[in-house]
């Protein structure tokens, strides 16, 4: 089953390597990994999707926490969340096909970002399935080139667990953290 983790890490050199190395070393298979800035300059955020069962998912979380630079891990697999992928798709669009492709783009709310005599380039954001759906329909016309960012995710609602956690230093850390599996 695909698990989605949101991982808050210190924004320091080499942290991405540490996370990637962990997945390789423990033979967990990354499906997609994205990393980028957050509202706090000292914090970066990764969205990682991994194929894992429940038990493995728990171990992935525990192993991520063993990395000193990891601040917070949340498995949002079964939680209400906004999940977005971005794709750019260059599709062959000769004279006859062009209007069909544009129609599809319209239905999927994809934007045309480049027009060439023989092709159109679409940009689409959305859940992975939505992008997969568009791709499926474009395939018969000839997909010349495609690139996807991998997903980024955010919980729904106002809750932001990261804000409490990332401000802790050693001094104001609570005495103990309850743990159960």
């Amino acid at each position: 089953m695909l698990n989605t983790f949101m991982v808050y890490v210190e924004n320091k050199p080499g942290v991405l390597t540490r996370v990637a190395s962990l997945f390789r070393r423990r033979a967990f298979n990354i499906d997609s990994l994205t990393v980028g800035r957050t509202e706090k300059p000292e914090v970066s955020r990764m969205t990682i999707t991994v194929d894992a069962d429940r038990d493995q998912a728990r171990r992935i979380e525990a192993n991520l926490y063993k990395l000193v630079n990891v601040l917070l891990v949340e498995n949002i697999t079964n939680q209400p969340a906004i999940i977005r992928d971005l794709a750019m798709i260059r599709v062959a669009a000769t004279h006859e096909a062009r209007s069909h492709v544009l129609e599809l783009a319209n239905v999927f709310r994809a934007r045309v970002v480049d027009v060439a005599p023989e092709s159109l380039t679409l940009e689409i954001t959305g859940a992975e399935e939505k992008i997969d759906g568009l791709l499926e329909l474009l395939r018969p016309y000839g997909v010349l080139e495609m690139v996807r960012t991998g997903i980024v995710a955010m919980r729904r609602g106002s809750k932001s667990a990261a804000s409490t956690r990332t401000e802790n230093t050693m001094d104001d850390a609570p005495d103990g953290v309850a743990y159960s599996v």
């Binding site: 210190e10 630079n69 601040l71 917070l72 850390a173 103990g176 953290v177 159960s180």
Partner: peptide
């Protein structure tokens, strides 16, 4: 030069129910 390890948590303890 105090350590600044905001993500490092060596001090876990079990939940009481356990």
């Amino acid at each position: 030069a105090k350590p600044q390890l905001p993500g490092y948590r060596p001090d876990l303890s079990p939940a009481p129910a356990e």
